[in-house]
Simulated scan of single mutants.
Amino acid sequence: MDWDDLRIFLAVARTESLSGAGRRLAMDASTVGRRIARLEAAVGAALFLKTPQGYALTAEGARLVAPSEAAELAATAASEAVRAEAGITGQLRIGAPDGCANYLLPQVARDLCDAHPGLEVQIVALPRVVNLTRREADMAIAVSPPDTGRLMVQRLVDYQLHLAGHRDYLARHPPLRDLADLKGHRMISYIPDMIFDRELDYLSATGMEVAQISSNSVAVQMQAVRAGAGLGIVHDFAIPFAPGLQRILTDRIALRRSFWLIRHADDRASRRLSLLADALAQGIRAEVLRLEGLLGPCPVRGT
């Protein structure tokens, strides 16, 4: 049985489509289909059932996943052994919520690529938790530790969030001295039914029930606050990217959250991914501390 056919099989199993596997493998979908047909002929069984939702594994296909993943690990280990003297190279795909992806990972990716010129970093910003079981990424950053799955979980860093508004907006609207004063202001937050993690429910900290402007994207919310459209809970580490933003009511509203690094348990044996995970963790910690340190102490009361 050809390892390359197993590699293609795993890509289809994880993406549940020929086109998705083709994009992941830089291969034409028709070629993927032919290779799957060749593998099915070799094992003497259908591995996938085509459904309206995509390509679902048959019972025979499901039994082939574990040995294929074992072959994948062996191939990865062999490749790393050959490249050991050349340093860390190849592709690293990182999944992250868009706040981290927009305001932290670009700088961290820059430093990783500077340190390892042969490295290619891909940042996947998704408004949901990245699925490592389906290999959507090599590792993921999340705002809550997962409670299921064969995963390695590492706490990275705590970060701060505060209510903020643009100075132009604050100059045009009534002063804010206490939480009750928020009733005279427009709020910006998440779309309630698109909050994919309870840690992202920021609006409840303000005592307000409705946000007049909402988005499933932290970056969009941040741009709305920057445009003077209203007030929103924002990451302290993002404020340096938005001149004119001011933290307000900091003695009334101050949130602390954490980033977690998540890896598939099978990757424990990969020295390459372990080294990259350590470098990624150090980079994110340092960048959060640097950016939050640019803000200085919080104002005690009001604007």
Rank of each mutant, 00 (worst) to 15 (best):
R186W: 11
P299L: 12
P145F: 01
P299S: 11
A140V: 06
L39E: 03
R268L: 13
L276I: 00
H185V: 03
T303N: 15
V121S: 02
V32W: 00
I253R: 04
D197R: 15
A86R: 07
D267F: 13
Y190H: 04
A115N: 08
R63S: 12
V130F: 06
L273S: 02
V43Y: 08
A45V: 13
D4P: 10
A74C: 15
A125G: 07
A277E: 02
S258W: 09
R35S: 07
R110S: 13
R257S: 09
L170I: 10
L289W: 14
T250M: 07
D158G: 15
A171I: 09
A96N: 04
E292S: 09
N216A: 13
E40N: 04
G232S: 04
D138G: 02
N216P: 11
R172T: 08
A142F: 01
G54N: 05
V300A: 14
F9C: 07
Q122N: 12
L200W: 02
A277T: 06
S30N: 13
A140Y: 00
M1C: 15
R172E: 11
D193R: 06
A227L: 05
R257V: 13
S144E: 09
G61F: 02
L200Q: 03
A74G: 11
A74T: 14
Q91K: 09
L25K: 03
A21S: 03
A71L: 05
L249R: 03
A142N: 08
Y190F: 12
R226M: 12
P145D: 02
E80F: 10
T133G: 09
S274R: 03
P299N: 08
L92E: 00
A242F: 06
P297L: 07
T31G: 03
E72S: 08
V65W: 01
Q212A: 10
A205I: 09
A59M: 11
T51M: 05
R301M: 13
Q122P: 12
D181P: 01
V32R: 01
E16A: 14
G20S: 06
T133P: 07
I213S: 08
L182S: 07
E287Q: 10
D178N: 09
A279N: 08
I248K: 02
R285L: 07
V32S: 06
V65E: 05
A56P: 03
G33P: 03
G61H: 03
D2E: 14
N102E: 15
V300P: 05
C113D: 06
T303R: 12
L104W: 07
E199N: 11
L39S: 04
G230Q: 06
P97I: 00
A71K: 02
M1Q: 09
R7G: 14
R263L: 09
A125D: 08
S270D: 10
R150M: 11
R268K: 13
I36S: 00
S30K: 13
G20C: 04
Q246V: 11
L161A: 10
G87F: 04
V153P: 01
G44V: 05
P240A: 03
G95R: 02
P297R: 07
A238C: 07
H235N: 11
R83S: 01
P146H: 11
E60K: 11
Q212P: 14
D5K: 08
L57T: 05
A205L: 15
L39T: 02
D178H: 09
E292Q: 09
G165H: 00
R128A: 14
D201M: 12
S144L: 10
I284Y: 05
H173N: 12
L249S: 02
I188Q: 01
G54L: 06
